[in-house]
Amino acid sequence: MKPTRPLIEAVGLSISFGPKHARTRVVDDVSFRINEGEAYGLIGESGCGKSTILRALSGLNGDYDGALTLADKELPKTRSKDFFRRVQMVFQDPYGSLHPRKIVEKVLAEPLAIHGIDRASERITETLDAVGLGPSFRYRYPHELSGGQRQRVAIARALITDPEILLLDEPTSALDVSVQAEILNLLRRLRIERNLTYLMVSHDLAVIAHICERAGMMYKGKIIEELTSHQIRQSQAGQDYTREFLQATIEAVARRDEAVA
């Protein structure tokens, strides 16, 4: 393994929702660190707080306690423009994450305009190529694209400003299985090509095992255990809950691995 430094770190992260008298703590004192170039996963059942962590980290929700750091600097609650250039997010639902009245080119040109990046036209061509969409998709509206194609456009949008970190919020769960594999392989290839750091949230063990080297098992707002992808495959878990969770999906993992490989 190459020498690494923690790029993202969460220390004592807690997030609560609701009015003062009836606050629900959704994320409870969570800490983790992600090294540069690493892919880290958060697994857990629905409602365990994994997407909430992602939204807090991305800057969509500034209402959290604890600290989030990027490259050893604590992030302010209101993120800077520079942060948005370095950290990008891919959403779960490709049908909701693209503006219905904007052609692909416009979707990709907008971030370039915001950050004042030059060579817009060439960059758009390059990025579309990188996500496996040809030039014929450039002037399409989202409703003319399939789910997988839309997700590729969403990934292209996230990549166009050359970020270091990609936050992935269940990027494949809204797609059908064969398309899932394509998108996962694309994400894997892009990470190697562009030396990206991933933080991926999923309830699907197979997806996490395929993409991530390490993963945190979440249960009721806490990370109860950290596992390597090897441990996930071998279902070696320290906690009872993790073992149960792994057991429940183990067959799916084995099956999916064949399909993806």
């Binding site: 800057g59 990008q88 994450s97 503006h99």
Partner: peptide, 24 residues
């Protein structure tokens, strides 16, 4: 999500309102 995505691109409120919400 597409408005959230624009916020994550660092777009200002004015840009989001006039460029993304008004057309809808």
């Amino acid at each position: 999500d597409y408005i959230a995505a624009m916020r994550l691109q660092g777009a200002s409120s004015a840009r989001i309102i006039f460029g993304h919400i008004v057309p809808m």
